[in-house]
Design a protein around this nucleic acid. Structure first.
Lengths: 160, 160
DNA sequence: CGCTTTGTTCATTATATTTTGAACACTTTG
DNA sequence: CAAAGTGTTCAAAATATAATGAACAAAGCG
């Protein structure tokens, strides 16, 4: 079965596909979010796969990813046993979910890493030691700044 | 020829390889930056390829990318006709270069896109029209915020 | 000049990522 | 409980991305 997209839908989807690229997410995830973003009604998995012409597997998997950081919500429709989905449009929620799911893990990991670096520097030849210590300090600075910027940026996206 | 990396070097390089992943840059670019970051002396292309055990092509291409947004600088060494490279450590310069090379193009593009969306909405059925207009407004809001946050974040990274 | 060294380019190859779709597990329904 | 409907998983296939290395260009040097 084949269902075509309006030009507007295509353009919106295209926009989110590019965003997905920037965020290192699969194309299909961008397509799904775009479709839901411009859809006046919640859609079920079948609607999505038909409209986007992608497989059931990609659709299920893609929606799972989007739910994982709160970019789509499920909607209960009485008397229908299918799951329906709609786009979350509150930027703050999406970003917040994305950060804690996809970004924070990296940052956490970074702290252990720094500790390990400080140990390893001991094994360097004395003439390099000073230089290496300086560079590691530099890195720690970057890390600190990143840690400060994040909550600040989050606050910047205050109302919805 | 085979030159091995110290444990410290490996750890630093590994760190930048991960960063490269987050920024959607090839692994080799992360390796190169990491190597230069922890190297007390500037290195030439041959040093890099030997230390990282990657091809000449990748090395040349990777350094080109790094130079393109100012993450590495070339160093002139009198009496040597090879090019030497060192890591730029001023975060502000790197981020600023990265933004204007890799991010701004997307944002610019976004403005044209919005204009196109506003045209297309005219072609929607009257009962959807209102909803679509609202969503497009929402998108414009996101775009505006992104535009405001960027210079602000840049300012946040004030001293080097 | 001819030879060597250095760096770039780009078609091919290798690798990593994404998508597909068939098999499966649940639920609901008649 | 059989049959149909819905959603998930995952091995295999398709696709996209990055790395390789040989061919090439440019520059220094005798």
């Amino acid at each position: 079965m084949h269902v075509s997209l309006s030009e507007l839908e295509q353009e919106i989807i295209d926009l989110f596909v590019r965003m997905a690229g920037v965020l290192n997410l699969p194309r299909s995830v961008g397509e799904l979010y775009g479709l839901l973003f411009i859809s006046p009604q919640p859609l079920c998995i079948n609607d999505c796969m038909q409209k986007l012409n992608i497989s059931k597997g990609s659709t299920s998997q893609g929606l799972k990813i989007l739910r994982s950081f709160g970019a789509v919500n499920t909607v209960y429709i009485p008397g229908d046993r299918r799951d329906f989905f709609e786009a979350e449009t509150a930027l703050r929620r999406i970003v917040s979910g994305f950060v804690s799911e996809q970004v924070r893990p990296h940052l956490e990991n970074g702290k252990e890493r720094m500790a390990r670096l400080e140990q390893l520097v001991a094994g360097e030849s004395p003439e390099n030691r000073e230089f290496c210590v300086e560079r590691i300090e530099h890195l720690k600075n970057w890390q600190r700044r990143a840690g400060l910027l994040l909550p600040f940026a989050m606050n910047f996206i205050k109302p919805d």
